[in-house]
Amino acid sequence: MLIKPNPATPEGQAIIELADLMDGLQERTGEWPGADACTILSEWLSRFSFESSKDAAAQATGRAWVLRRWDRHSDELTLWSDKASALAALAQHARSCWDDVAGKNGAPYRPPADDRTAVDVYYGPVEDRCDEDYTLRAYDVLRHEDASRILSLKDAQACTEANRAAVFHPMKGPDDEGLPCIEISGVLVFAYLDAGTEAVRVSVHLDTADEHLALADGTVPVQVDVEDATVFTHPAAPPAPPVSERRALLGWLARLATRPARVRRQGGS
């Protein structure tokens, strides 16, 4: 999936402006001359500050797959959230140009249905590639957080910032023994489909939770909701009084509300 810059943010606006500058260079010269491209990038990068606070801690928020594909007419760079999506896009390009390789060097006349096979057949051995090739590499996406701010469940702003900083850890591939997980301030919430129990399973792990979330007894307060029903709370909420007691209490309050107020006399009778 392509990453779309958000024009409402300074960073997103800057990326869009850079794309416009490079498109303008392409229209003027028909290519990206190295000197002109370097000048544009140098001026663009000077608008950013890459200094980080000594208290800032780097956190991996996921991985991005960078696909570069080039031939005699183009040089394209795209970002993808997973390897399979990047390969699917590359295979789509290969199939659209399949007439160039059909029937040559043992290539079938129809492109294979499998994306990996289609890419391998289309591009052929690495040593035989000339004007057309590609690279596909994975990079960690990092984020720096202000470690000086103390998290508190009573601080709405701190909770909002922690929620915005939540990280999703997907499975990296079919052979990955891990499970999809959301991480929020050290709390790990696994949600996955379990064929063994034939159910959607949710597992919460608190061993690595931020120490500021803990209560005086060292436990972390948790509330679990399914749809509109709360199925678990810790610490446990005080039990509700029996229905008969609640009715008696409501009836007593109703009678109290309708009882005429007594006027206290002052002075003699």
Rank of each mutant, 00 (worst) to 15 (best):
T197K: 09
D175M: 03
D146F: 00
L215V: 01
A14G: 11
R264A: 10
I16V: 07
F168Y: 12
G178C: 06
A261E: 15
H93I: 00
I3K: 15
K4F: 02
H144A: 12
L151W: 01
A229Y: 07
D225M: 14
R72L: 10
F50Y: 08
R262L: 14
A254D: 13
V226I: 09
A195P: 14
P242N: 04
L25I: 10
L249R: 15
A57M: 13
G30F: 01
L206W: 03
A102S: 10
A229W: 06
I182R: 13
D100M: 10
R110A: 12
P5Q: 04
D23R: 15
R259G: 02
A8Q: 12
A158E: 10
V121G: 06
A14I: 01
R149T: 10
D175R: 11
C130E: 14
P5R: 07
D140Y: 03
G30Q: 08
F232E: 04
L67Y: 02
G173L: 08
A191E: 10
F168H: 12
L151I: 05
K83C: 02
M1E: 14
S185F: 00
D131W: 05
F232H: 14
T258A: 15
A254E: 11
V243C: 07
A56E: 15
R28A: 14
P7I: 07
Y134L: 10
M171P: 04
E211Q: 08
V204F: 03
D128I: 00
H205L: 05
V222M: 09
S49M: 02
I40F: 01
P238T: 06
S81T: 08
A229F: 05
G106H: 08
G103A: 01
S203H: 13
E183M: 07
D133C: 08
M171R: 13
S85A: 11
Q26Y: 09
D194P: 03
A162W: 01
A60N: 11
V187H: 03
A88E: 11
P7E: 09
H144W: 07
